[in-house]
Amino acid sequence: MRYKVLDIVWLLAIASERSDRVNPQFKKGVLELCVLALLARKDCYGFELVSSVSRSVVMSEGTVYPLMKRLRDEGLLNTYLKESNEGPPRKYYKITDGGRDKFARLLAEWRAFTQGVDDIIEGRQSA
């Protein structure tokens, strides 16, 4: 088991070296993928989005907020205000067309990567 974990770590290291094929900042890329995936489904307000991400992925909520700001700066997300039943209006995040493109690209990278890892774990890799 320990051997396989090391394999995965090694693969991650290689993946981050090969920047032409895999997002170099792999972990940040995965988090970005999660945020874009959630917003591709529906618009969310900050707390909703952050708690969804940190519920499934072990990641500090404090990492997600700055990321959302960066994604908005890059034009992948938009924000708008919407009245809420409880308290003041909430700021909602909405994915842009550019964000959808980026999502598709990251998803393809992710699929290829996990496929590769699965192949190694299951021993399907042709030697």
């Binding site: 307000y45 900050g46 707390f47 909703e48 952050v50 909520e61 907020y65 308290g87 909430r90 700021k91």
Partner: peptide, 9 residues
């Protein structure tokens, strides 16, 4: 944003 996080939470 962070204050809203505290409020919503």
């Amino acid at each position: 944003e962070i204050l809203a996080h505290f409020n919503d939470g």
